[in-house]
């Protein structure tokens, strides 16, 4: 980790693009400074010697959890309830904008 973690406006725009979030010009400016502050604070982790440490991604120590490969009846109301949640639909289909 380097001390050079000021985030530019251009970088914020690039990250927003990756994250699929539209930001206003004001938000872009604000995040450039806030993210820089937070990253600056996080920089203190570089003090810790982790050269011989294995990373941890979960704490339970379980490896695989397998259930029986058996049929389970689904909730008969679920289909309609799911469709009711569609913000845009045509009959029972989700309507989206043209991709190509």
């Amino acid at each position: 980790m380097t001390k050079k973690n000021r985030i530019s406006i251009e970088e914020v725009k690039h990250i927003a693009d990756l994250a699929r979030i539209e930001l206003t010009a004001q938000e872009t400016k604000k995040f450039a400074s806030e993210l820089s502050d937070v990253l600056g604070y996080i920089d203190q982790l570089s003090e810790v010697d982790t050269s011989k440490i294995e990373p941890v991604s979960q704490v339970t120590g379980t490896i695989n959890a397998i259930r029986d490969d058996a049929k389970e009846d689904s909730d008969p109301d679920a289909r309609k309830a799911l469709i009711d949640n569609f913000p845009n639909k045509d009959g029972d289909y989700i309507k989206v904008k043209q991709v190509m």
């Binding site: 982790l45 810790v48 982790t50 440490i53 941890v56 704490v59």
Partner: peptide, 15 residues
Amino acid sequence: EAYYLKAQKVRALII
């Protein structure tokens, strides 16, 4: 590596 992986290693030390 600089952020997420580093944090996961420090997490191991905290544990």
